[in-house]
Simulated scan of single mutants.
Amino acid sequence: MTETPNPNIVDADTLTGEMRPIRRMVVALGSNLGERFATLQGAVDALADTPDVWVTGVSPVYESDPVDCPPDSQSFLNAVVLADTTLSVHRLIDRAHAIEDAFDRTRGAVKNAPRTLDVDLIVVGDRRSDTDELRLPHPRAHERGFVLKPWLDLEPDAELLDRGPVATLLANVGTEGIKLREDLVLEFE
């Protein structure tokens, strides 16, 4: 992993005085089992309750057709959360998994099986990782309209690290199978 933190933006640890860079992160949420909207709201709340994570924006909710999922999979509700953090990527992926587990996410042998909750780190600052545990930036985000569209709603000038402007990426993949759910609005404090 490489990192070039912004030396002008730091957060002092209140116990040790250690200075840690503040990084912008983009998190994609998805659910296609159970109480999908309540699960997404719970995930937003859990992220907002995470020490050293400050949620700065939550996208509109979209309903999307399942992509690369087993036959007969139900549609997903998707959203994107923007946040600032001083946590390491390893702490963030552990937190993402803990949030999934809290909503009874099961991981099985079937790839992309239906799930109560998916919490994916898309980007964390300019961090790069290519391990079995974590790939940053997310390796398929540039192919996923259900990630790009809500992200673009929050940040019209957003760029996906190593891939380019989100608007251009979305134009390439399109929005077929993705529908805005104006009746569902996620809240954050």
Score class of each variant (00 low, 15 high):
Thr2Gln: 07
Glu3Leu: 12
Glu3Tyr: 06
Thr4Ala: 10
Thr4His: 10
Ile9Phe: 03
Val10Asp: 07
Asp11Met: 11
Gly17His: 12
Arg20Met: 03
Arg24Asn: 13
Val26Gln: 00
Val27Ile: 15
Val27Tyr: 04
Asn32Ser: 12
Asn32Pro: 06
Gly34Glu: 03
Gly34Pro: 01
Thr39Asp: 02
Asp45Trp: 05
Leu47Thr: 04
Leu47Trp: 03
Ala48Cys: 04
Pro51Glu: 12
Asp52Glu: 09
Trp54Ala: 14
Val55Thr: 05
Gly57Phe: 02
Val61Gly: 00
Tyr62Val: 13
Pro66Ile: 15
Pro71Cys: 12
Gln74Ile: 04
Gln74Pro: 06
Asn78Leu: 08
Ala79Gly: 06
Ala79Gln: 06
Val80Glu: 10
Leu82His: 12
Leu82Ala: 11
Ala83Cys: 15
Ala83Val: 15
Asp84Ser: 13
Thr85Asp: 08
Arg91Phe: 00
Ile93Cys: 10
Ile93Thr: 14
Arg95Ala: 09
Ala96Thr: 11
Ala96Gly: 07
Ala98Lys: 14
Ile99Phe: 04
Asp101Asn: 13
Asp104Ala: 15
Arg107Gln: 00
Ala109Ser: 13
Val110His: 04
Ala113Gly: 03
Arg115Phe: 05
Thr116Val: 08
Val119Gln: 04
Asp120Pro: 05
Arg135Tyr: 05
His138Tyr: 07
His138Asp: 11
His138Ile: 11
His138Glu: 09
Arg140Ile: 05
Arg140Leu: 07
Ala141Cys: 04
Ala141Pro: 01
His142Ala: 09
Leu148Met: 09
Lys149Cys: 01
Pro150Trp: 02
Trp151Asn: 02
Asp153Thr: 06
Pro156Thr: 09
Pro156Gln: 11
Asp157Arg: 12
Leu161Gln: 08
Leu161Pro: 00
Asp162His: 11
Val166Cys: 05
Ala167Leu: 01
Ala167Met: 01
Ala167Cys: 02
Thr168Glu: 15
Leu170Glu: 01
Asn172Val: 08
Thr175Asn: 06
Lys179Asp: 00
Leu180Arg: 14
Leu180Phe: 13
Leu180Trp: 10
Arg181Tyr: 02
Arg181Leu: 05
Leu184Lys: 11
Val185Arg: 15
Leu186Ala: 11
